[in-house]
Amino acid sequence: MEDVKQKVKELSLKYGRAEENLLPILQGIVETEGYISEEAMVEVARELDISAAHVYGTTTFYSFLDTRPKGKYVIRVCKTISCMMKGKNEIIRELENVLRIKLGETTHDGLFTLRETNCLGQCHKGPAILLNDVPYTDLTPTKIRKIVNDIRKKENVSN
């Protein structure tokens, strides 16, 4: 709780306390805390001297502003038309098997969250995902399995 307070204060100082800096501040919270808790929203409202309802309204509008904890690695699979045609369902099936979770869930060790998302702008190289902020394109089930296993190795987790 104190941490969040401190973080919100730092971000408000960095970007300024004007209302138009709300989005950068919220993005900053997601970057360090992983998600925006209700406590954080109230704190932001206090710092910027706007209503908590306003902060809540803005936060919940944007799909990248998470309001619940998520894994260290978020995999967003593009589900829009071009990627669908190129087999995004096979990628999702493979991910569900490898991670042993369903779409929308987070693994028990808190390492991965699996989601679908709308067009990533990689339509000529589908199927595509965003792994946190980085796009991976031209995927196959084999490729996506390797990406997951490489992260597991890096994080020292056995299957």
Partner: peptide, 25 residues
């Protein structure tokens, strides 16, 4: 650079302004 946060509608110019002003797009 002003970074968006994942909302197609913000490509609509007036929604984009709203978003830059810290509001829902």
């Amino acid at each position: 650079i002003f970074k968006g946060s994942g909302a197609y509608i913000c490509g609509e110019e007036s929604a984009l302004f709203e978003s830059m002003e810290g509001k829902r797009g």
